[in-house]
Every structure is written in C-alpha cells, then in structure tokens.
Design a protein around this nucleic acid. Structure first.
Lengths: 143, 143
DNA sequence: CATTCTGTAACACCACTTGTTACGCAATGA
DNA sequence: TCATTGCGTAACAAGTGGTGTTACAGAATG
C-alpha cells in the first residue's frame, strides 16, 4: 500500500543524534538511514525550518539538535514534514453537485477526521524521549 | 498526498443503484462516475466477489444489488476493495536490528492501530442506507 | 585559497491508481 | 444460426509522490 517512511526515519535519526550528543554530518546520518546524503538534507531541512534541528555549513559543520528529546513530540516532527492532514479522506469529485456523492464524501471525511484526531492525540502525547527509553530498554534486554 | 477514490466512488454508485432499483450497465455507471466502463468492471468486480453486487453478461445483463442498503456497511465495501490495513503505519526498515528504529516503528504502528480501530468502528456502524437518507435530505433541502 | 560542509536543481526509478484500447466469452433474441 | 449486447481481462500509457543519484553553487573554516 502507501508508504512514506520520512516520519519513521526522522524519529529514528533524531533519537540517534540526541544519544550521540554532538554534531553529525549528512554523510554519517545517511549511513544510519541506509540512504543518500541529499535525502537527509532534504528531510532534515524541513525539521530545521521548524526549529527541531539546526544546520551549519562549511568545515566542521553538520546537524545538531535544537531541542532536547523530551521537548519534541512525534506530532511536531510530523507537522514539520507535512503541514497538511495526516489521514486525508479520499473523496470523489466526479459530480460535485450530486447529493449522493456529497453524502458519501461527508461520511468518509467525518470518519477520517475522527481517526486523525485520535492519531494526533497519540502523536502529541508521545515525546522522542519515550522512544529513546524504549529503545534502551530493548537494547538492555537483548544484551 | 495519497488518494484512492475507489471507496468513495463505490459508496456513490451503490446508493445510486439502489435508488434506481433495477439493473445498470457498466456504461451507465461509468457515466455516473465520470469514468470508463473498464474501471467500473474492475472495481465493481471486487464487490461482486464479496456478495455486495451481482453481475450478468449478455444482452440485458449488467449489475444489480445483491443486498439492500441497510445490509451494507461502509466497512464491508472497504474490505471488499482492500483486505489489508486501512491505515498502515509507514515504518522504516533501514536497519531492522537497530533498537532505536524498532522503538520508533513500534510507536507508529501502535498509534496507527488505534486510529484504524476508530475508523473501523465508524465504518462498521455506518450503513449505506444512512448515506442514502442524508443525500435525500440534502436534495430535499435544495429543492 | 583549498577543504568541507550544506542547499538545491535536475533527472530517473518505483509503486499504485486511473484511463484507455483491444479482444475473448456468454447470453439474448430475431 | 448469428448479430448484438455486455461482462472479463490483458496490456499499456499517464499522473502522482517518495526515493535515489549526480552535479554544482554557496558559505565557513583554517
């Protein structure tokens, strides 16, 4: 089905960056994400525009956290990546004046709005520090 | 963003078919949906496989409802169109053994599962007869 | 002033829905 | 019997959106 791995990737890399503490270059982050430095710049750039990370060019530059993990919610990352609805209702617009089409669309829009509200509630209540804690517990359990 | 107008289109056309009562050809349904007969056959075919509509070939053939509107939920139509998750979590799989990636994915999967549960609850509680009633009230109000 | 970074444009690729053409098969009815 | 009607399906192009990649400009450092 549909996929947009950006949110998952950003959560992943933000936690790593915070745990590592210092500055990371796009090159190194790309290795963490098993991808390309340009993709990293593109995606982290959106987070920088929302004050989650900061970037510096030139020698010794790279990316660093602009907030601590407990100040960043999953919702904030999502919003930085995409300002639109998270779960847009897929409506039809074949005959916009048709009452049946409108009623069908209205049902879908209302349902998606409720589902998105639930998702936003959870995203907004989850900080990245919780993810970091869960990860460290898992790692400890495996060690 | 993402779009998959099939569900909206099927709700639309099912209500119309029920209101019209008789048999409709792919050609006429395509006109309702402002699309192509082949697309109609493709999509209605999935509903036929789940007992929502029935099709007959040959002269005088076409499509007819196999159930009444109050026996069909939005959820049933959705399931007929796609058996998988409605709101799959977009996870990453760059480093499957990385605890941080796993923890990030787990958060997303859990959140999406809750949102989908809410969506399924609403879809399952909404029958097409409710859409038909809403559409007729709208039409009446406009007339 | 060379090096090391980010910033960004440009393009190909992949996956998926949609639109379209073409053709096969079944059922009807003269 | 046979032409007509309508579904069933394969095949292919188009549009969309994230991803991967190359190339190059700009800025900061030492």
């Amino acid at each position: 089905m549909r996929s947009d791995g950006r949110l998952a990737r950003m959560l992943h890399v933000l936690v790593h960056m915070a745990l590592l503490g210092g500055r990371e270059t796009s090159e190194r982050i790309a290795e963490m994400l098993n991808t390309n430095p340009v993709v990293v710049r593109r995606t982290l750039g959106a987070l920088r525009d929302h004050g989650i990370v900061a970037s510096e060019g030139g020698r010794g530059g790279g990316w660093r956290m602009a907030k601590s993990l407990d100040e960043i919610t999953v919702l904030a990352v999502q919003r930085a990546l995409d300002g639109g609805p998270i779960l847009p209702a897929a409506t039809s617009s074949d005959h916009p004046s048709c009452p049946v089409e409108r009623a069908s669309n209205a049902v879908l829009v209302a349902a998606h709005a409720e589902a998105e509200a639930r998702l936003v509630e959870i995203y907004g209540a989850t900080t990245l520090s919780e993810i970091a804690r869960a990860a460290m517990e898992t790692a400890k359990g495996q060690a």
